[in-house]
């Protein structure tokens, strides 16, 4: 039974205050239990063109694609825009250039990709046009205008990434002009790209130890990686991650996931490849050739 006239105003005040604080703290607790990610603003820095390799240029393109360019906000597997990461953009570009719906002036894929970033409505993939435009107007913003503001160099890097990620030759030339300003790699307003920063973190993120013996854990499912460096050179290790079905180790079956090349960032791939090939024998001439030949296509790993 409730007391009819229970408290003085002061007593009610304190009880109510305690209730208010308690409920407010519940909401605060929930906010603090959720994933804590900050969206950093682009910070401009200079690129040392002298030290720029095609690998790092492609890596820059990927970072821009997932960061400052905010491409992955829409170009993902959520169906908002064509999933570029899951498509071979060179093949798609060639097909679109032949399509009668194409309204641009490009004659090759590189020019088409650049054109599509500067004037996205030159070709709108069916089903992805603005509502009511019958797929003639793209909702995509022009990338060299605000709020994205990619520079010429940055657009070239993104094109290089789109070409390289599926193993196609990169036709974009490395920039040679005066240093240009580009965005820092960690820049992102999109869903966070959480790149592992150590080989151990990469192995944990992709569950390598679930099948392979490595890093003080043992598993008989796949070949041991403790001695990987004695059997494979650096490029072979890289290939076995990107395309595990290419060479199947004797005594094992083809069961390794084929999508690590898509899922891993270039940095993560480099970290784990460097780790597995650490202390390997000095590169043979064959290795050197392999390295040189892949400088323009390292992006295929992605």
């Amino acid at each position: 039974m409730t007391r009819p006239y229970p408290q003085q105003a002061g007593g009610v005040l304190l009880t109510v205050l305690a209730f208010c604080l308690g409920l407010t703290l519940v909401f605060t607790l929930i906010a603090n239990l959720l994933p804590q990610v900050e969206g950093e603003a682009p910070v401009e820095k200079e690129v040392d063109l002298g030290a720029l390799t095609m690998d790092s240029f492609v890596a820059l393109g990927e970072t821009l694609f997932k960061g400052k360019g905010t491409c992955t906000l829409c170009h993902n597997n959520m169906g908002r825009a064509p999933d570029i990461l899951a498509s071979n953009m060179v093949q798609d570009g060639e097909n679109r250039l032949k399509d009668e719906r194409y309204k641009g002036k490009a004659s090759d894929v590189e020019a088409y990709l650049r054109e599509s970033m500067l004037d996205p409505s030159i070709y709108v993939v069916k089903g992805f046009g603005k509502k009511g435009s019958n797929d003639s107007v793209s909702p995509m913003p022009v990338v060299d205008k605000a709020p994205i503001l990619l520079s010429q160099l940055e657009m070239d890097a993104v094109i290089a990434f789109m070409q390289a990620k599926d193993g196609n030759d990169v036709t974009v030339e490395l920039p040679k002009e005066a240093p240009a300003e580009v965005a820092k790699t960690e820049t992102s307003t999109a869903a966070p790209v959480e790149s592992a920063s150590t080989p151990e973190a990469v192995a944990a993120k992709y569950g390598c130890q679930a099948c392979h013996s490595m890093m003080a854990t043992e598993s008989p499912v796949g070949p041991s990686l403790v001695d990987a460096k004695s059997r494979l050179n650096k490029e072979a290790i890289r290939q076995s991650i990107i395309d595990p079905a290419a060479v199947i180790a004797e005594g094992f079956v083809d069961m390794m996931p084929k999508d690590f090349g898509d899922k891993m960032t270039i940095r993560e791939l480099d970290l784990i490849v460097d780790y597995l090939s650490a202390d390997a024998a000095a590169p043979t001439p064959q290795d050197a050739v392999a390295t040189t030949s892949t400088t323009s296509t390292t992006g295929e790993n992605q």
Binding site: C20, A31, V37, E40
Partner: peptide, 25 residues
């Protein structure tokens, strides 16, 4: 100029809410 993490934002909201509720009371 960065978008803060949810926890930080939540704490700011709570500070504002508690000050407001105290003033309302």
């Amino acid at each position: 100029n960065y978008v803060p993490a949810i926890g930080y934002a939540g704490n700011m909201m709570t500070i504002a809410t508690i000050i407001f509720l105290i003033m309302v009371l």
